[in-house]
Design a protein around this nucleic acid. Structure first.
Length: 746
DNA sequence: TTTAGGG
DNA sequence: CCCTAAA
């Protein structure tokens, strides 16, 4: 308080104050802010106002007697107390001090005061706007939150707390703010104005500026200012709120003198003001009404009067605000908000909270003009606050405004505790908003989504091809985080259908796909070959199965599923196939690259980079079943690459871990199933053995063998011999006969 | 579901 | 490659 007075002196008119105060504010900011009320005398000198003074000023003439004017007062008092407590922190004392007394007597005087106040406020607002602009430009960071006020447990307190520790979360305090900016101050400003507004007088006289006589709000130093708030809240929602808030309330008051100091419990004062409104007698209300609208009213309904008055104020304020540079500021704010990202936006919390509170209040209390749309409210945010304060004394608008803002900040960032009520509400909202928003943003916007989207897109492409291989298969194993095109994506999107299975896939779909891809020529060929080979032997079996058809369907379905899963569509990155040449190389690389290391899938195999031909290679044969059904048989020759990949996979994961290998290395390949891998491996083992005993059976090796480079076969043998292949049962047969490989367990 | 095996 | 049994 004391300081305040000093500050007050400095301050004088809002404008002047601003100038002087800034520095002070800055310093103060660190502390938290406090609002001070200053009493401005006619001569322009400023005195720090005590709560009582403030109160009195707000209510009636300064020092005049205060009579407890309002019956409501009692209620109000209680409320106030609460609020006061909140604020108390800084001013704790004040609380006690405040009694609501309204000097009815000096309405005229009050009016003058109010006018003066309003003027002052206007000036402040103007200034604030200016500052904001600067700030906006300068600040990005905003972060920090300083907070603010501790005093009260309530919101303010929070701010203070912020400083202590919590505020960390919100952001780091920006030195900037402290130093240069006042953001906090702005908030404070808000507070004051609001409060003032809330107080009866404020509203009307916007336009007229006169030297403020009465109390002036001082700036709080709260650090919380936007900056802090911003930092604290990042949520988009918060942004909005923030923006809104900032525009008005925030007016950061600036620094003005107030900063200097001491924190007065502005709040308390505000409360008083508010209280005053609420507490005002009908007569007083009439006065206010008259002053506000310039006409008298016969209406005796207090509620109505209050509403009208508050509305009038709001309008006025709006006008003023608008007139001032607010719009600019607002625009800036919006821009800011838009940025959203600024994670930092700690501020939001406070602001938002305010907004939220306001809105809530509005909703709750009919007092405010509900008519106004939310936006409107926001715009007039300040005004409303004032009005609210006005209207509702109980809830204590003050809290809202300030507390809200501050508290919010604090709460949001730091303490949740601040105000019980307001806080809660506010808090909750704010916090929620902020967090939520953040969360949402962060989350949703999450990379995942993004990636997914990418994935989807990719998937879109995929369809046709089977991109079978790429290294990054990803997902399943979680191999490459980067590549997470998880199949999920695929799944999710309907694309899978579209995609259908890759040509490769075994399912029935293949044909379609294949048809698309395969050259007409190929297809036939494939078919024929397929037919020749197997049809006969299998036909019987097939026949066996009555279900052939059904089965086919099943397969298809399965295939589809697989695809859905595996296909990653994606990955444009995917290597897709480079073709044989590539294959070789790839193979080499793969081998080199993939050391046997652990089983870690991720590390392990790269997804295949399969060769390009993949699809084309596949041969699909339709085999008629005995039943008359048809079965498709697919023949897709293994490429060297695939083999290499398989080998690596085995090396990494061990034999028998087909599913794992599949995921790791073949996830992208729709057509190679774990079973396929297993089969292939078996074949490789055989081949490798054959290699060893070349002569044994004569020359005839299977040619496929030839296709497989000796080194690879060697490696296969090597792997086969390794104990680890099959995890547990290494012992089992390892050496046994023919295949060195362990084969099976069980 | 996955794996091992037989065909 | 397919198909099935076992787990």
């Amino acid at each position: 308080m004391l300081d305040a007075t000093e500050d007050g002196n400095d301050e004088r008119p809002a404008s002047s104050r601003k100038e002087g105060s800034p520095e002070a504010i800055n310093t103060d900011v660190g502390n938290r802010m406090v609002y001070k009320l200053v009493k401005v005398r006619d001569d322009g000198s400023v005195l720090a106002a005590t709560e009582d003074d403030v109160f009195q000023c707000l209510v009636g003439g300064s020092d005049n007697g205060l009579s407890s004017y309002d019956p409501e007062g009692s209620d109000a008092v209680g409320d106030d107390d609460d609020e006061g407590s909140d604020y108390v922190a800084s001013d704790g004392d004040d609380l006690s001090g405040r009694t609501n007394i309204i000097p009815i007597q000096d309405l005229a005087v009050e009016r003058q005061r109010l006018k003066a106040q309003i003027e002052v406020l206007d000036c402040i607002l103007m200034r604030v706007d200016l500052e904001e602009r600067r700030r906006l430009s300068a600040e990005k960071e905003a972060a920090e939150k300083v907070c603010c006020r501790e005093g009260n447990p309530s919101t303010y307190v929070n701010a203070g707390d912020v400083g202590s520790g919590e505020y960390k979360r919100q952001r780091r305090p920006n030195p900037k703010y402290f130093d240069a900016v006042y953001d906090a101050g702005d908030d404070f400003l808000m507070g004051p104005p609001l409060s003032s507004s809330s107080g009866e007088p404020m509203p009307r006289p916007l336009s007229s500026r006169k030297p403020p006589r009465n109390t002036v709000v001082v700036s709080p130093r709260v650090t919380s200012g936007w900056g802090s708030h911003r930092s604290s809240s990042r949520a988009a929602g918060s942004h909005r709120a923030r923006a809104v808030v900032t525009q008005k309330p925030f007016i950061r008051t600036i620094n003005k003198a107030a900063s200097t100091c001491p924190v007065l419990s502005i709040v308390s004062k505000d409360d008083h003001n508010i209280m005053s409104l609420d507490n005002l007698s009908i007569r007083e209300l009439h006065e206010a009404f008259c002053s506000t609208y310039g006409r008298e009213t016969s209406v005796k309904d207090k509620h109505w009067l209050k509403r009208q008055i508050s509305a009038g104020w709001v309008r006025q304020q709006d006008v003023v605000i608008r007139s001032s540079s607010h719009q600019q500021v607002q625009n800036k704010l919006k821009a800011r908000l838009d940025r959203v990202t600024q994670a930092e936006q700690p501020l939001p919390t406070t602001v938002p909270s305010n907004v939220g509170n306001i809105e809530r209040e509005v909703a709750n209390e009919s007092h405010l003009q509900k008519e106004n749309d939310v936006e409107h409210f926001r715009d007039t945010f300040r005004n409303r606050l004032g009005s609210r304060c006005f209207q509702r004394r109980v809830t204590t608008p003050a809290i809202l405004s300030r507390g809200g803002s501050f508290g919010i900040l604090a709460a949001g960032s730091l303490n949740g505790s601040s105000d019980p009520r307001g806080q809660t509400a506010i808090y909750g909202e704010v916090v929620n908003n902020g967090e939520v928003v953040e969360g949402k943003r962060q989350r949703k916007p999450n990379r995942r989504y993004i990636e997914d989207e990418a994935g989807y897109v990719a998937s879109g492409f995929v369809p046709v091809h089977d991109t079978r291989s790429f290294y990054g298969e990803t997902e399943g194993a979680g191999l490459n985080s980067t590549k997470n095109y998880s199949w999920r994506t695929v799944e999710t999107d309907g694309s899978s259908d579209i995609i259908g299975r890759h040509g490769n896939v075994r399912g029935s779909n293949l044909q379609n796909v294949s048809s698309k891809k395969f050259s007409p020529i190929q297809r036939p060929k494939l078919i024929s070959s397929g037919m020749k080979r197997k049809v006969g032997g299998r036909a019987a079996k097939l026949v066996k199965m009555a279900h052939t058809t059904a089965r086919a369907a099943r397969h298809d379905a399965e295939a589809a599923l697989r695809k859905a899963k595996f296909q990653l569509p994606t990955t444009p990155d995917i290597i897709t196939d480079d073709i044989p040449d590539v294959n070789v190389e790839a193979g080499d690389r793969a081998s080199t690259v993939m050391p046997i290391v652990e089983c870690d899938p991720a590390a392990v195999v790269q997804p295949l980079v399969l060769d390009s031909r993949g699809e084309s290679d596949q041969l699909i044969v339709t085999v008629p079943t005995a039943n008359g059904g048809t079965r498709r048989k697919h023949h897709r020759p293994w490429t060297l690459r695939e083999v290499m990949t398989l080998v690596e996979g085995v090396a990494r994961c061990g034999g028998g871990k087909w599913a794992d290998i599949k995921k790791l290395a073949f996830s992208t390949v729709g057509y190679r199933t774990a079973v396929d891998l297993k089969d292939k491996w078996r074949n490789l083992l055989r081949a490798s053995r054959a290699q060893l005993h070349p002569t044994k059976q004569g020359e005839r090796k299977k040619q496929f063998t030839a296709a497989i480079p000796a080194p690879i076969l060697s490696r296969v043998r090597e792997l086969a011999s390794l104990p680890n292949q099959t995890p547990s049962s290494t012992v089992s047969m390892s050496s046994t006969s023919r295949s060195g490989r362990i084969v099976h367990r069980r």
